[in-house]
Each structure stands twice: as C-alpha cells, then as structure tokens.
Design a protein around this nucleic acid. Structure first.
Lengths: 231, 231
DNA sequence: TGTACATCAGTGAACGCGCGTTCACTGATGTAC
DNA sequence: TGTACATCAGTGAACGCGCGTTCACTGATGTAC
C-alpha cells in the first residue's frame, strides 16, 4: 500500500483480471464465470487471483460496479454535449447512449439488467454506480419541470405519490410532481424493456430495424413524460 | 407407447420430474439446474431421468415451453371473460393476468424473459408456445382497429412499416396499421420492462406500491395504443 | 386363467471433468539504514 | 552505493465437492397365445 510503483502494477493486474473476466462473460454468462478459467486464460494459477479478489463474488461485484459506471459515464458524457435548454435533445442523447452502450456490451448489460445471479447479493455500495444513468434521465425531467409551469392535476398526483417511494424519488427530482415522476419511471422501464427484448432475442420476427424502432420509441417516451410541452 | 396405462404413469413421471425441477429453479436459477439434484430430490438415481429426457437441455426446453404455455393460458382465460366489445377492459384483464402470473412464478418468468441461458438454443417448436400471450394482446389491438375507423398518417405508417417485420406482424394483426402495431409492440415491451425491473429488484427505492403503479401503467399503455379512442 | 416373452423403469458403479478455496512455499521487488 | 530485511506476487499440490452421461444389470409390468 505504501509504494506507488507497486500500487500501480497492482491496479494494472486488477484491470487485467477484470478484462479477462469480462471477455469470459461473453461465452458462458455470469453463472459460468470461473476463477480457474480466468487464471488459465492469463497463464497463471488460480490461487494467484486470490491476491486481488477475496473470492468469486468479489470479482463479480467489481464487474457489476464497472458495468454500471461504464453505462453511467457513457450516458453522462453524451447528454452533457447538448445545450441545456434543449430538453428533447438531451433526452434523445441519453436514450441513444444507453442503447449504444447496451449493444456494445450485451453481456455486461445482461449482467446488470438480466436475471439476478442466484445466491449473489449485491453489496450496498453498488447502489451509487447503479443510479448514475438513472440520474441523467432524472435531471432532464427535473430541469424541464423547474423551467416550465405545469398545471398538475392534484388528484392524479395523489395516486402517483402513493405508488411511488417519494422520499427516494424527491432526492433525484425535487421539482417534479409525482404524476410526472411516475411517467418518467415508466419511460425508464420502457427503454430497458425494449433493450432487453431486443438483446435477449424477443423481438426477432417482429422488428426488422431496431434503430428506427428505437428512434420512434424515444419520441414516444419524450412525449409521454411531457418534454418540451408547455402545459 | 402401446399401453395406455404405461403412457399414463409415464406422463405422471414426466410431470413429477418437471415439478421437482421447477422447484429447483427457485433456488439457483436455470444455470444451476442439475439432473442429479432433481433425482436426489425424488429419491432416485440420476440415470433414471434419462428414461424421460435425453439430456439436461431437453428438460430445460420442457420447462420453458411449460412456462410460456402457462403464461399464455392464464392470459387467455382472463381476457376471454371480458365482453368482446369492451376493449379497454380486455387490455386491462390481459395485462393484469400477465403480472399476476409473473408474480406467482418469478423464476419461470426469469427463465423465459431473463438473460438467455448461455449455450442453450431454444428449438424452433417453442415459438408456438412463446407467442401465445402475445397473441392475446395482438387480438385486442386487431379487434379495435377492425371496429373503429382510424385516420392514419400515411407518412408515419411508412416509417413504422420500415422498422417492423411486417410479414410477421400482419399474421397476428392483419387489420392494424403499422404505426399502431409498432405502438402495440412498444406497449408490450413496456409491460415486460416494468415487470422485469419489478421482479429483478430495480424498482426498490423508487416504487412503493407496485400494484398501484401497474394500474397506472395499464391506463397509460391502453391510451398509447389508442384503445377505445375514436379518431 | 395361465404361461412365456418382450418391454419398460430404475439401479449402481464408473468415466472424466471442472470448480472454489486453502496452504506452505519460492523468488522477486521494494525499504531502511 | 551496498546490504539486511520485510513485503509482496505467484506457484503447485491438495481438499472435497458436484456435475452430465454411459452402461450393463435387475425386477416389475404389461402382452399374446
């Protein structure tokens, strides 16, 4: 821990292990990820890996956190390039970035948005990474509501507020009324629902050009959450 | 194959094996499903199972087909009870049935809508079972379009038609214009996106009462696909 | 109704395999004087 | 700059385990006459 040189080579080793493990996710999935196989791929003994990860689950956790962060960073940087005032375009950029990342890293997508790994419990500290991409979307909605004045139906709001975990939602979107926040959450699940179906093969036979379909979906969801619509 | 008595006990054995395997999906997931463990649970030797399934994948296929059929039957029977003319209610009934089934069988839901099992390729004959629930939704949309006259935007239709695999879509929904079919498909992915997030734990901290949220989602999606709205 | 035979269900041992994890160890790489 | 020592990275053998699948077999259950 003292030597910066050692710390650097150590970090490099950790990166190499994770990269090898990531490659292995592609052929076999999370359940089949094996420390021995990773070590074999690196021309090392399996016991060597225990210098870097206490056990298999710890490696998995690292991969999951990396995936969340990677998705988060991609979404953030894409959305940051857009003029703050153009909320529709920000929405579009964020959604496109998410899909792009998902298609570029289908196995990491499956790792975080697919079936939970049986017997694996994600540690609490993964939450920060997990909410990064969500945060981008939430901020767009919040900026929109902070700018425009909305006539919100109070009765409608109550129903939505009951359904939502408002304490948590208000941290991310303080200026967003419950009804809009709920629609935002629906849009969120809609995006990932489409991507999961697309990546997991459930759209075969019904969709020919996913790109075009997704553009349509972006427009639909941005309408749904009321982006750019003065009410 | 000749004796009906033997065929019956044989079918019963198959059912017992599948039931035991299903129970095992709950603790460990599809990847961890093991013939040896199933046999152990049944107080039999593992080799005995090879009388009924040629290998592990064949058992998995049977479970998948059963899950699809079970979901299909649940959706069909719930939707059939509703007055044919009340399309909104039919939509509601179908969606509710899907969610109910998913919550009652989370592991079978994960089996068919979660991460594809690595190395497993579903045989072609599973498609029939897989499209059963889809068919219910498609029929509602088709009935709606057959009844109401819609002013469809032609230009809009063309874009949607390009995105869709029209040959397949038109078999299920011959009377539905492409733009509506695409919105229907989005609604479809929306429903399952919500359910996946709900069952896989991605809504923890943002949604308190899933039932209420889902009811709102049903209303939203039924509006989206234009149900009961004369245009 | 009784018997000979064929078909089936299930057994038990074995095959070769891979896994996570531990542990005592050998060298190499840094640190302190 | 040189040496003694501590810390680290990686080895190799071993532990106990579970897996899918095969195969020759024993009984039980039906079938045909």
């Amino acid at each position: 821990m003292e030597s910066p040189k050692r710390a650097a080579t150590r970090a490099a080793s950790v990166e190499r292990i994770k990269a090898t493990a990531r490659a292995q996710l592609a052929c076999g999935g999370a359940a089949a990820l094996s420390l021995r196989e990773v070590a074999r791929e690196m021309d090392q003994t399996s016991s060597a890996l225990y210098r870097y990860f206490a056990n298999r689950d710890e490696l998995l956790t690292a991969l999951i956190v990396d995936a969340y962060n990677d998705l988060g960073v991609c979404t953030e940087t894409a959305e940051r390039k857009i003029d703050r005032g153009d909320l529709r375009s920000r929405w579009r950029a964020a959604c496109r970035a998410i899909r792009q990342w998902a298609h570029a890293h289908p196995h990491e997508y499956a790792l975080i948005f697919g079936t939970p790994i049986p017997g694996y419990e994600a540690p609490a500290f993964t939450v920060a990474a997990a909410t990064r991409a969500t945060g981008v979307i939430a901020r767009i909605l919040n900026d929109d509501c902070a700018q425009t004045t909305r006539k919100t139906n109070e009765r409608d709001d109550d129903e939505a507020a009951r359904a939502l975990e408002m304490s948590g939602v208000q941290v991310l979107m303080p200026d967003v009324p419950a009804s809009v926040a709920l629609r935002g959450l629906f849009a969120w699940t809609q995006i990932f629902g489409f991507l999961s179906f697309e990546l997991f093969g459930h759209l075969e036979g019904s969709i020919r050009r996913g790109d075009d379909a997704f553009e349509k979906l972006i427009e639909q969801t941005s309408h749904q959450v009321g982006l750019g619509v003065e009410q």
